[in-house]
Amino acid sequence: MKLFGSGHGACPGCGLPIAVKNVLEGVGPCFVANSTGCLEIISSQYGKSAWGVPYIHSVFENAAAVAAGIEVALKALRRTDEGPIVVFAGDGATADIGIGPLSGMFDRGHNVLYVCLDNEAYQNTGNQQSGLTPSGCYTTTTPAGKIMAGKQGQKKDMVAFALAHKLPYVATASVAFPRDIKRKAKRAIEFKGPKYIQIHSPCVTGWGLNGKQAIPVARLAVETGLYPLVEYENGELVRVKKVKERKPVEEYLKQQKRFRHLFKHPKGHEVVEELQKIADGNALKFGLDI
């Protein structure tokens, strides 16, 4: 049986199914707990489920806890051989509304792979800012107006959050590199305890792209250093995706409607410089440049 099937309702060019199918191929038959959000809506309509694995959606902010419940139940019922447990949750479900249950799951050390599908805003409801929306980004709740140039503040560092919980495996990935997603998912489940993978995934409608742009734009996020692909095992940085001739962030930003105001707004230049600093900082911190 396929683990995830065609006929789901994702927008043409959506990154989420690319992430999901490659994670599932990496881990094999497993249990999936999903938060409310884009993925849930495109895949779990009554009588039209796209899932070929046991799947549960409860509410928006509790997928980590539901997964923990599956794990303890399998332990109590002596059924741990049935397969690993994977959470798929959006960036808002992960970094905002569900961060409490996520911390609890990490803290108790449940044997769960938590995958954050990061499309950088609440895209299911039409692009409202989340804790993982990058600085300066336009969303419907952080619009570019006369005095504001998109989102104030930075993208929340959930990798650091995961590492602070002493997780054995923490990684970032991108739908532009699906083989890397598969490898990381496969690697992650070799570790016992909670694992965290955050996958950058473009939203064609929210980011203002056409379907064909999604993968090239996601690739640019990595090639500019704005979305470094890193991998930690037992707290040690073990692998990073190196970048040859790192590109300026403008190249990434200019292709997306959500950042277009930055090139007209009086405060835009400042924000672009800020984002370039973030990229440069990432390059330095992770040794991205070859």
């Binding site: 509410v59 419940g69 019922l77």
Partner: peptide, 24 residues
């Protein structure tokens, strides 16, 4: 039996949703 200390009542109920759906 597994006894789990949740991080909140919200978490406790959520853990039981996952566990109950799994057949516990």
């Amino acid at each position: 039996c597994e006894y789990v200390t949740a991080e909140s009542e919200f978490g406790a109920a959520s853990i039981l949703v996952g566990a109950s759906a799994t057949g516990a």
